[in-house]
């Protein structure tokens, strides 16, 4: 049983085709990495999954009552906004049925504090959001999406512009979350992608899925990105190679 199925999804921006006939099935508790060049449609794909963009044709099927947790890039909001960390995280408890004079319950705040404690950010609870480091801010956004108690966590470049320690920290955290939840993550980070992720979708208008038999083919990555990419990572990170895209003409 798949938790998400995309069937023949097409998205156009005006006359430009952004996504071409995408078929994607995501299993429960899968850790799916979406990679591909800039402008290749990764973010568009994510937005289709989140319901922010309606596809021009095709279907996105999800299991009933599935809850999505979204972790945006932290360039997507105003870091100077006068809001403290706890209030950012509590946002995850808001629902589409707006209540007049809504107040967060004591239980909501307790749950938020538990999650913050688990993620090691409880001490920042009263800080203004912009006063955190990149890694801490990313954890706040992950905590916010965990407040929804999502079945699927969808992340957009969670490690962009983080130093390698912070990156490893975030990936370790995601690995833990993955034991309970499905994770879909857009990433540029080839090194880590290959070691933590269960399956990979290469998106460059079209989508190529690599499941259990992941191995990274240098030439193929080069084709997808249009330039050579360093596939070697430091340390003992396992190195995998993806098989060729079947039926690709070139």
């Amino acid at each position: 049983m798949y938790i998400i199925e995309m069937q023949d999804v097409n998205v156009n921006y005006g006359r430009v085709r952004a996504l071409d006939n995408i078929n994607l099935k995501v299993k429960e508790k899968e850790f799916l990495g979406i990679i591909g060049p800039n402008g290749g449609g990764k973010t568009t794909l994510l937005k289709v999954l989140l319901g922010l963009i309606k596809p021009n044709s095709g279907k996105v099927k999800m299991q009933k009552d599935i809850k999505l947790g979204y972790v945006p890039q932290f360039t997507s909001f105003n870091k100077k906004f006068p809001i403290r960390v706890l209030d950012v995280i509590l946002m995850g408890k808001l629902t589409k049925r707006m209540k007049l004079l809504h107040k967060y319950s004591k239980k909501d705040i307790q749950v938020a504090e538990q999650i913050m404690n688990k993620l090691g950010i409880l001490e920042f609870k009263n800080r203004q959001i912009g006063q955190l480091s990149g890694g801490q801010m990313q954890k706040v956004l992950i905590a916010r999406s965990l407040m929804i108690d999502p079945d699927i966590l969808i992340l957009d470049e969670p490690t962009a512009s983080l130093d390698s320690n912070a990156k490893n920290d975030i990936y370790q955290l995601l690995k833990e979350i993955n034991s309970e939840k499905t994770i879909i993550m857009v990433s540029h980070d080839m090194g880590i992608v290959s070691s933590y992720i269960g399956s990979i979708a290469c998106v460059n208008k079209q989508l190529h899925y690599h499941g259990d038999d992941i191995h990274i083919d240098e030439q193929e990555i080069q084709e997808a990105y249009g330039c050579p990419i360093d596939l070697i990572t430091h340390g003992t990170t396992p190195h995998r190679v993806l098989r060729e895209h079947k039926g690709e003409e070139n």
Partner: peptide
Amino acid sequence: FDEEFSKV
């Protein structure tokens, strides 16, 4: 604060 997340 975060229009996109609110929409989601």
